[in-house]
């Protein structure tokens, strides 16, 4: 019984790290993604080219590789080794997810009809006012299903942190297999399921709230 309690305690601790990676990534990647979107939609060609290349590289290579690069590259190339492995993981996650979010945002922004911008313009609104008061909310509504998909993927991706030795839940659980205990490893699935279940409900609630209008 103490073994059981020990295992549960360790798993919870491990999942705490998954939650930290999840929330930090979300908190930073959501706004950073918007910055990248503005870059990749810019009329200034070099900036647009740079942003789109960046997105191509980030989306085109494995997140696992990116974590390694962030952890080791500063030490090898700049003689500035990263002390904290968790920081490396966070940086890689934020960059990776910002790139994905930026493409979702771009799709949403480009789906808004030109007429909305023109209506704002003839009503004397500034570009910023048109974006924040007219367009943004409609974009949020349209991208919600794609965002919920991406956010749920993020929850599961947090387990990738183990490859650089960040003791997230699956890494913690795997240690028990060496003691002949296999159930902790399998039970980690429940943590993810419950967490994603809550997220699914939350996104369903938000989508429902945004459904007060069509268009």
């Amino acid at each position: 019984m103490t073994m059981f309690n020990d295992a549960i305690g360790v798993l919870f601790e491990g999942f705490g790290l998954n939650c930290i990676i999840f929330s930090c990534t979300l908190l930073l990647a959501l706004p950073l993604g918007l910055v990248i979107t503005f870059g990749s939609m810019s009329k200034f060609a070099p900036l647009k080219w740079l942003s789109r290349t960046f997105v191509w590289i980030i989306r085109g290579t494995p997140l696992m590789l990116q974590i390694f690069v962030v952890l080791y590259a500063p030490g090898l190339l700049l003689d500035f080794p990263l002390k904290s492995r968790l920081t490396a993981v966070l940086v890689a996650f934020v960059i990776n997810y910002a790139a994905y979010f930026s493409e979702i945002y771009r799709g949403g922004i480009e789906s808004i009809s030109k007429g909305q911008y023109e209506a704002g313009q003839v009503l004397g609104m500034t570009k910023a006012q048109i974006f924040f008061k007219v367009v943004l909310f409609q974009v949020v509504k349209r991208i919600m299903p794609a965002m919920s998909n991406e956010v749920i993927t993020l929850v599961k991706d947090t387990s990738l942190a183990r490859i650089v030795g960040v003791a997230e839940i699956i890494m913690c659980a795997e240690r028990f297999t060496k003691q002949g205990l296999i159930w902790p490893l399998f039970s980690t699935g429940i943590y993810f399921l419950v967490f994603n279940g809550i997220l699914t409900l939350l996104f369903g609630y938000i989508e429902n709230k945004l459904n007060y209008y069509r268009g």
Partner: peptide, 24 residues
């Protein structure tokens, strides 16, 4: 200047064929 541009814009109102109301 953007400010002058908008002031000029306010001389005129425009009603679109496709309304372009703000749905939210």
């Amino acid at each position: 200047k953007p400010f002058d541009e908008r002031k000029k814009q306010l001389n005129f109102g425009l009603v679109f064929q496709s309304f372009n109301l703000f749905p939210q």
